[in-house]
Structure formats: C-alpha cells, structure tokens
C-alpha cells in the first residue's frame, strides 16, 4: 500500500511539475504568469480528441498534429494578445491571460459542449508493468516518469547549449540589453510561448488520461501545477519539478489521512510557504533595489 502511495505521489507530482514547467518557462522569459496555460492544454487535448474520434486517426498521428496545433496556438496567443499591449502593468498582464483563459474555455464549450468525454490514451492507469520483481508501476506513471525526465534533460541542454536557449536567458535577464546584442526579443517570446504550449499540451493529455475530458478539466490541475511552480520558485526549472513532487507527496499522504480535505491542502500549503519564503523554496530571493 505504502509503495503504491509513494509511486502515485511521485507520478502525479511529476505531472504537476511538468505542467508547472510550462508556466515557469513563460514566466522566466517574459515575466508573464500565464493563467491561460491550463486552457491552452485543454483545447489542445480536445483537438487530439477530435482528430481521434471524427477522423479515426491513430493516436500517434493525432498526437503529432496536436503538437503542431499547440505550437501554433502558443505563438498565436502571444502574437494577438500580448504583443499589442504597450507597457502593460502586472495586473494588465494577469487580466490578458485570464481573458485568454475565458476565451479558450468559451470556444471549447461552444465547439464540444460541456458533457464529459473519454480520452483514449495508449498508457492506462489500470495496467501495471513490472520493472523488477516486487515493484509494479502502472503504465501511466511510467510514461510520466520517462517524459518528465527526458523533458528536463532536453530543457537543460536547450537552455545551456542552444543559441535560442541562451537568447531566452539573455532576454530574461535584461530585455533592452538583449535587443542591443541583436536578439529579436519578439521572436524569442514567440518561441517561448510555443515551447511552453507544447509541454503544456503533453502534460494536459496525461491529465486527461487520468480523469475525463470536459472544458473544465484543466482548471484544478492547472492551479495545482501553478501552486507547485510557486512552491519550487517560478524561475528555476528543476525547482518547479521538485516543487511538483513535494506537492504530490503532501497532497497524497494528507489526502490518505483526511480524504475530504485533499482538494484544499495544496492551497493552504502555498499560502503558508509563501508567507515564510516569498520566492518559493528553490529560487534565489530577488531583492528590489531602490
């Protein structure tokens, strides 16, 4: 029982972490907290569902097309909604992303209705695989582990060695200096949103495989993932994944003891952690200079 709980905590935590990474990438580069991230993932999952059911495509074809869609969606939202805003305030940015959330949610419920659907995902939660004798993990958790690990490694390599990744880090540190150095900051933002939307869409599919598919299904996971990202510190990517795993553990163990309070433990925890350590657990505290 206890092993199962640990594996479950690790898996759901990694999934929160993965989605939190999508939020963190945008925040890292452009200081925008994307409240619409959950709905971007939701609409991408719906597109995959639509391709699967309406055109009868195989999962991997649908998956590939959805990834293309997610990239375009991320770029489109950045291009249409964030780029035209001139010197927006923090509140203005939050309002824009909340607006895109409402917009996407409205569009999804207009197109697919509010009733719940089943999303066919090749990795199931109920089928177990044996890794070594005595330890069984379900396929879904296995998929999450492999995916999270590979995305972490890829992102590390990307931010460390690729030109675009270095340009992103430069943009984060100082936009004007980056512009002077010949970086097209707008294009960097475009790519940032594309990458984030891609990761978010993959994570959303994993969430959809666990629960049902309806226009609201990413609301709760998004807020957990966001909480996890804040817990780990929004600016450090390994921190975000660790934050997700910590949150997964606390939530599952707490939920095991007091099931009825499971939905809110994440938020109470976040308020407490933020009061004690305002920048999250693993990020350097940023001190404002006057």
């Amino acid at each position: 029982m206890i092993e199962q709980l640990i594996i479950e905590s690790l898996a759901i935590g990694a999934c929160y972490g993965l989605f939190g990474v999508a939020v963190a990438i945008i925040y890292k580069t452009s200081d925008v907290v994307n409240f619409g991230q959950g709905e971007m993932g939701m609409i991408a999952t719906f597109v995959a569902y639509h391709i699967l059911t309406a055109y009868g495509a195989t999962f991997w074809v649908a998956f590939a097309l959805t990834m293309v869609f997610a990239v375009l969606l991320g770029m489109l939202i950045e291009f249409l909604f964030l780029r035209p805003a001139k010197d927006p305030t923090v509140l203005g940015l939050i309002i824009i992303t909340l607006g895109s959330e409402m917009l996407l949610m409205g569009l999804a419920s207009w197109k697919w209705g509010a009733e719940q659907k089943d999303f066919t995902f090749p990795l199931s939660v109920s089928k177990n695989v044996q890794i070594f004798p005595g330890l069984e993990i379900n396929e879904w958790a296995m998929g999450v582990f492999i995916l999270t690990l590979s995305i972490m490694i890829l992102l590390y390599l990307f931010f460390r060695f690729s030109k675009l990744g270095i340009a992103m880090r430069a943009t984060q540190q100082n936009q004007n200096a980056a512009k002077i150095m010949g970086i097209k900051v707008e294009r960097v933002f475009s790519f940032t949103w594309a990458i984030s939307s891609l990761i978010g869409a993959v994570a959303a599919m994993f969430f959809a495989a666990r629960s049902v598919l309806d226009p609201n299904f990413m609301m709760e996971p998004f807020m957990r993932a966001f909480a996890a990202a804040v817990l780990g510190g929004l600016t450090s990517i390994p921190g975000v994944v660790l934050g997700g795993i910590i949150l997964g553990f606390i939530e599952n163990f707490f939920g095991y003891a007091w099931p009825e309070w499971k939905p809110i433990v994440a938020f109470v925890l976040i308020i407490i952690i933020l009061t004690i350590k305002p920048s999250g657990l693993f990020a350097k505290h940023y001190v404002k200079k006057v």
């Binding site: 409402m102 409205g106 569009l107 207009w110 209705g113």
Partner: peptide, 15 residues
C-alpha cells in the same frame, strides 16, 4: 454550446 458565448465575449473585453 452557444450559451458559452458570454465567456468568449468577456474574455475579448478583458483582452
């Protein structure tokens, strides 16, 4: 799903 149009309108107003 047309009743969800208010959500779309509100989102557009916000942006």
């Amino acid at each position: 799903g047309l009743q969800n149009f208010s959500s779309i309108a509100l989102g557009l107003i916000m942006i």
